[in-house]
Amino acid sequence: MQLKPIQEQVVAVVGASSGIGRETALRFAQQGAKVVIAGRSEAKLASVAEEIRRFGGEVTVALADVTEFEQVKAIAQTTVTTYGRLDTWVHLPATAVIALFEETTPEEFQRVIDVSLMGQVYGAMAALPYLKQEGRGALIHVSSMEGRRSLPLQSAYAAAKHGVEGFLESLRVELMHQNIPISVTGIQPAVINTPFWNNARTRIGVKPAGIPPYYDPRLVADAILYTAEHPTRDFIVGDAGRILDGLQRLSPGLVDRLLLWFGFPLQRSQQPKAEDDPNNLYEPIPTQTRVDGDYTDAVIPSVSDWLAKQPLVQLGAIAGLVTVAVLAAQPWNSKE
């Protein structure tokens, strides 16, 4: 399966007004792609479009709430009407309620599912007909490491992200069965320093925090742009995410005990926040247009992200390990 170079692509970025989505839209435009940016806030999208046009990029704005299928369909239709085709669909929107499960209302749980899972489903439903029409392309869905391992205080968000992972696995095999060359990628970021923690509704009495370490949102944008050109099944962002994935595969019970120890205190900041303070569960926060969140001092680099983009290096490492294992198994010390 071969994908077009980014400079030749038409890309729809859903959830482009802040955080990872904003950085991703800017990066696609900087590298020459024609970009459609979508979100709920006209003013916030206008600020992204203005920044793109300032450096000479091509951009179109599509206003949409991802919980409304017809509005998501309109994003894809606008893309094809404006630029003649769709090559890559990037879907990011998510929301969260940070609270004990028993303190989360049914309406809040449903809303998180509607935005963070059903929005992703609607995105794929809207984009697929046009990707099939083009004969190739990429569906890139930003999930979370919580699709691999749930955290306490985030039951609705974790349920949605597990749903995204299951949905993508099924869709991917169906497209393979039909011999349709569309790349389906799940991006699983670890804890990223975006305004997500400012936007979440909270019932823990303080502004939520991620379990450190934090990673730069630009690493996620890097992964998205990489997978837009290189068909990739999954891409975990952040060394800590890969360690967590390994631990979960090795011993889920061990991870339970670790999260019991630090999963609660480390999700609490020192900044008071009430549950009715501004959050994006039902409405966007108009002033929240930043890429970075409030935890920049806790951001660290990630070595394994570079390695994940070097398949030849990975093959060499695997070959080296196999060679060592084979040599170790030889009876060099045999006296026979």
Results as ranks from 00 to 15, higher is better:
Pro272Ile: 15
Thr79Phe: 09
Asn193His: 08
Val66Ala: 03
Ala325Arg: 13
Val173Met: 15
Leu327Lys: 13
Thr95Ser: 07
Val191Asp: 13
Thr78Trp: 11
Ser170Asp: 04
Gly84Ile: 03
Thr60Lys: 06
Ala156Ile: 04
Ile180Thr: 13
Gly246Gln: 06
Val72Ala: 08
Ile75Leu: 12
Asp245Arg: 11
Ile37Arg: 00
His230Met: 07
Val303Met: 07
Gly15Ile: 02
Ala127Gly: 03
Ala200Thr: 05
Val142Ser: 02
Glu169Arg: 06
Phe109Met: 11
Arg290Pro: 01
His230Trp: 03
Gly32Trp: 11
Gln133His: 07
Asp294Ile: 09
Ala325Asp: 03
Gln288Tyr: 02
Thr82Met: 12
Thr287Ile: 06
Glu174Arg: 15
Ala223Thr: 01
Ala209Cys: 12
Pro286Glu: 13
Gly241Trp: 01
Asn333Gly: 10
Val10Glu: 00
Pro331Tyr: 13
Ser269His: 05
Thr67Ala: 02
Ala74Ser: 14
Val10Leu: 01
Ala190Met: 05
Gln154Ala: 14
Arg148Leu: 14
Ser269Ala: 08
Arg172Val: 11
Pro212Gln: 10
Gln267Ser: 10
Phe101Tyr: 14
Arg148Ala: 04
Val66Trp: 05
Ser144Thr: 12
Glu229Pro: 02
Phe69Gln: 15
Tyr215Arg: 02
Pro106Tyr: 11
Gln110Glu: 15
Glu8Lys: 15
Arg54Thr: 07
Ala200Tyr: 03
Tyr83Asn: 00
Val191Cys: 12
Ile211His: 03
Trp306Phe: 13
His162Glu: 14
Met176Glu: 15
Asp234Gly: 03
Arg22Ala: 01
Val313His: 09
Gln9Thr: 03
Ala308Ile: 01
Ser334Pro: 03
Leu175Asp: 03
Pro93Gln: 14
Ser18Gly: 10
